[in-house]
Simulated assay, not measured.
Amino acid sequence: MIDGSAVLGVFSVYIAGVVIPGPNFVAVAHKAASATRIEALAMVAGIVLVNLFWASCAILGVGIVFAAFPWLALAVKIAGAAYLIWFGGRLIANASASQSTQRVQAPAGGFRQAFAQGFATNIANPKSMAFFAAVFSSAAPPHVNVGTFTAMLGVVFVVASSWYGFVALTLSHTLIASAYRRAKAWIDRVCGGLIVALGVRQLIR
């Protein structure tokens, strides 16, 4: 039997955590406006897969693991922050690179590369780790049956896919993508700066 109250509790905290902008949102928004729609959706798939992983860990007790081994949480936090700083710095460094005025087809491996970028961005995202370890895990009961566990993961899948998919589809619209290309250098600098700031913020907190 599925514990409806537990699933509803997870839904209420998770939807708030997803909608609040963070590195995942910035990465999807940038990919949607700068690449093809299929690449943006591939990035979303990578992010959603990691969210399912973190949610599974949270339900199974990752918060307890990090509490017992604080050095592990610190190591993950530093590694994630370092990746965000590197990723944002690369955006800034490449902000002035030339770009065609017309959208091009995704190169071979574009889908796989975008999926890997989404996966890497989220797995190294300290915000995701902290949210699932602290907030999400507190909303999940200590022990759940298979039905409730599956329903909770279903909530994560639907909410994350819907939100990030909406962002990807909206910002990959032709008019929005064209506007991005006209202001590419400045938008890339802003997106890169935001990601670097998020990484630095995680290091000093």
Rank of each mutant, 00 (worst) to 15 (best):
F115V: 06
S34Y: 04
G61Y: 08
A82R: 00
T121C: 12
K31Y: 08
N51L: 05
V76K: 00
N24F: 07
V26Q: 03
P21L: 09
R112F: 15
Q105T: 11
G80N: 00
H30A: 11
F25K: 01
A124N: 08
Q99I: 14
R90H: 11
W71C: 03
S98M: 12
I47K: 05
P126H: 00
A67T: 11
G118L: 03
M43S: 09
F119D: 02
V19Y: 10
G109Q: 08
A67M: 13
I123R: 02
K127L: 10
V19M: 06
A45Y: 09
A97E: 13
S96A: 15
A130I: 15
W86E: 02
A68S: 13
S100D: 10
A97H: 10
Q105H: 09
F115T: 02
A124F: 15
I64P: 00
G17Q: 03
G63I: 11
I85W: 01
N51G: 10
A40S: 09
P21R: 03
I20F: 13
A97K: 13
K77G: 05
R37Y: 02
A33G: 12
T121E: 00
P23F: 03
A27D: 00
V48F: 06
S128R: 03
A40E: 04
G63Y: 12
N94I: 09
L72P: 03
A79D: 04
G88D: 02
W86I: 11
F111P: 00
G17H: 08
T101P: 03
Y83S: 05
I64L: 15
A33C: 13
Q99K: 11
V44C: 07
F69W: 13
V28Y: 00
L74T: 09
N51Q: 13
A45R: 01
F119R: 02
M129P: 04
E39R: 06
P23R: 01
S56C: 11
V65L: 15
L74E: 13
V26W: 12
S34E: 09
G110Y: 02
G89D: 01
V13P: 06
M129A: 14
A116G: 10
A68C: 06
A58P: 07
T121R: 03
G110H: 07
G118Y: 06
S34G: 10
K77V: 04
I59N: 01
A124H: 06
A29C: 12
A108Y: 12
I20H: 02
I64M: 14
N122R: 05
C57W: 11
H30Q: 13
I47A: 09
S56Q: 03
A93V: 10
A130L: 12
F119G: 04
S56A: 15
M43Y: 09
V50I: 14
M129D: 04
V44H: 06
Q113N: 12
V48E: 08
Q113H: 13
G80I: 07
Y83H: 04
T36P: 01
G22K: 04
L91M: 15
F53L: 15
I59M: 15
A79H: 01
T101V: 12
I64Q: 12
V62L: 15
N125F: 00
A114L: 05
G46V: 05
A106Y: 06
A108F: 15
A120V: 13
A40K: 00
F87P: 00
V19K: 02
F119A: 13
Q102M: 14
A55F: 04
G89R: 07
Q117F: 14
G46Q: 07
F111N: 01
G80K: 01
Y83M: 06
A32E: 03
I78K: 00
V26Y: 15
A73N: 07
V13M: 01
A29V: 13
